[in-house]
């Protein structure tokens, strides 16, 4: 079977079945947009993790007056206790995990607090005494938080050890929920797309049953009879995937780059580059889904 002949058959099939083909394109487009969005949200999480995990630290808060912890039974932290903690951070057992650490006094804590809550009225009511001293520890591997927690939380003079990642995890869990929702919608839409491809191919096979009947009689191979239909399904799916990729790229370009990234310059956002990474997978997915569903349909409805 000649390539040109297959193409002309495909073109004829697409034209004859235009409304169905358009619906396949649109449904594939919507479903793959959701798949792509879910993938991009996951990439956004990874991106933020990479960006923030370098910056977040483990904070070892030290005891102040009347803190409830058993380790704080002696009241406010004493100088020897503080020296012990610092020595522990520098000890051979802990050093491999620690990239860097610094001590933050009550006064420094107040300065940071004021910076952080610049626009809030709370700033005026807080005094340095109300804020705890702390050691700010940057870890070589942020995942090793447990080691630090275990070693320091039971030390005298340590109030509590806090992993700042916990705060980020809340944001990530929201993004995760959004991507799960997107995946859920995508799954339903993909089922629609697959069934619609099947129906379209079935209709196409029916409208061309005379052609296929003749092809069969003159001895065309099974593959050459089915190929134009499969190509037809794949082209429709492919167009849907291209549309989805285009829309995602547009969102990344104009919404994320053009708006979000300008409003939140501190945050690392995904960009068009990530869309270009996702797009080939969307295209591959559309080709595989459309191809498989047309082949399965033809096996059932096209006698060869």
């Amino acid at each position: 079977m000649r390539f040109g002949f297959v193409l002309s058959e495909v073109g004829y099939g697409l034209r004859r079945n235009l409304s169905m083909v358009v619906s396949v394109i649109l449904v594939t487009f919507v479903s793959l947009t959701f798949v792509g969005a879910a993938a991009l949200l996951q990439m956004q999480i990874t991106q933020m993790k990479g960006y923030w995990y370098d910056k977040v630290q483990v904070a070892i808060f030290l005891c102040g007056e009347d803190y409830g912890q058993t380790t704080c039974a002696d009241g406010s932290i004493t100088d020897p206790q503080r020296t012990d903690i610092q020595a522990m951070l520098e000890s051979a057992a802990v050093k491999p995990y620690v990239a860097d650490f610094e001590y933050e006094s009550k006064a420094q804590a107040l300065i940071h607090f004021r910076e952080q809550f610049e626009n809030s009225a709370i700033v005026d009511t807080v005094t340095a005494d109300q804020l705890p001293e702390s050691f700010r520890v940057s870890l070589v591997d942020p995942e090793k938080y447990d080691v630090i927690n275990e070693l320091f939380s039971s030390m005298k003079g340590v109030d509590v050890v806090i992993d700042q990642r916990d705060l980020l995890e809340k944001i990530f869990s929201i993004i995760n929920i959004a991507s799960v929702v997107a995946i859920g919608i995508a799954a339903v839409m993909i089922v629609c797309a697959v069934l619609l491809v099947g129906t379209t191919i079935r209709l196409s096979a029916f409208t061309r049953r005379r052609e296929t009947g003749i092809m069969r009689l003159v001895g065309a191979s099974k593959a050459s009879i089915q190929l134009p239909f499969v190509v037809e399904g794949i082209i429709a799916g492919l167009l849907g995937a291209l549309l989805a990729s285009g829309v995602l790229w547009g969102l990344a370009r104009f919404f994320i780059d053009g708006k979000l990234a300008k409003e939140y310059p501190d945050t690392a956002f995904i960009s068009t580059g990530e869309v270009l990474m996702v797009a080939p997978w969307l295209i591959l997915l559309s080709v595989v889904l459309a191809g498989v569903s047309s082949i399965v349909t033809l096996r059932r409805y096209l006698k060869v």
């Binding site: 079977m1 003749i214 092809m215 003159v218």
Partner: peptide, 11 residues
């Protein structure tokens, strides 16, 4: 020609 095309005869 269709009968010849579908079995891959040359143009």
């Amino acid at each position: 020609a269709f009968a010849m095309q579908v079995i891959g005869e040359s143009r």
